[in-house]
Amino acid sequence: MKIDDKTLTVSKISTSNKRDVSETDLYLLSAIEKLVYRVDYLEKRVRRAEELLYYVIAGNNKMKEPCPTNYTRMGQNCYHFSNRDFDWKSSGSLCRGMGGHLVEFNTVEESQDVIAGIMSNSKLKGNYFWTGGLNPGLLWIWAKSARPVQQDTKQTVIGDGRCLKLTFNVSSKLYSYRGEDCSSRQRYICELTVEDESANRIERTARLLIDKSD
């Protein structure tokens, strides 16, 4: 009987420990989610402050700089829409060759601007496009920034593929996200941000200095 009592006591302790660990995990997960949300909120506030500072310094009558050749301005950034199909990896390489990267929608407004531009262009409307979204196994992230896709755009992703494309629904006449096999061939969208343009200018300047020194 004593042995049974001891066994019962150990069993209770073990069950209690498992419950404690589970509750701790849930608490930590909740804390991490709140921290990620807070960091994202602060990043957006800083980005907005930088935009306002630039606006004040540059003067409120200053027009946005034109986009480079093959890019079109939509909202804050410049975009290039391919007219040929490539796999996801090749699409990313082609974007980098143009000084940009596969499009990453950081806000709902940005995705709405780009999709509105696609819908208003008869040559683009109805086509599927690769984006910079990637699923390494746990969740969908933007490949360049490593930010969660759903956190930025609030859209769910259907499909079993690991690479993210914009797909057009003929019935609803709407674009949505779909996970696609990375080796399949689609058109793609390149994005050129202010940060990309600054980095490109620095790289060009560095090359000029190297050429002059030679």
Rank of each mutant, 00 (worst) to 15 (best):
I3M: 11
D5L: 15
V10A: 14
S11A: 14
K12Y: 07
T15A: 14
K18W: 08
D20M: 15
S22T: 12
T24H: 11
D25S: 10
Y27L: 14
A31P: 02
K34F: 09
R38H: 14
V39R: 07
Y41G: 04
K44N: 12
I57E: 05
I57T: 05
N60H: 15
N61L: 15
K62C: 10
P66D: 07
C67R: 02
P68Q: 03
N70C: 05
Q76N: 13
R84A: 11
F86H: 07
F86G: 03
S91G: 08
S93C: 13
L94R: 07
G99W: 04
G99D: 05
G100T: 08
H101L: 04
L102W: 06
L102P: 04
L102C: 03
F105C: 09
E109G: 11
S111P: 01
A116D: 13
G117V: 04
M119W: 02
M119D: 13
S120L: 12
K123C: 13
N127L: 05
W130F: 01
G132A: 04
G133D: 02
I141Q: 09
A143M: 06
S145K: 06
A146T: 15
Q155R: 08
Q155C: 08
T156D: 11
G159K: 01
C163N: 10
K165F: 13
L166I: 06
F168Y: 15
S171T: 15
S172P: 00
S172R: 00
L174N: 12
S176D: 08
Y177W: 15
G179A: 00
E180S: 07
D181F: 12
C182T: 00
S183R: 00
S184Y: 09
Y188Q: 09
E191V: 11
E195H: 08
E195W: 03
T205M: 10
L208H: 08
L209M: 12
K212Y: 13
K212V: 12
D214W: 09
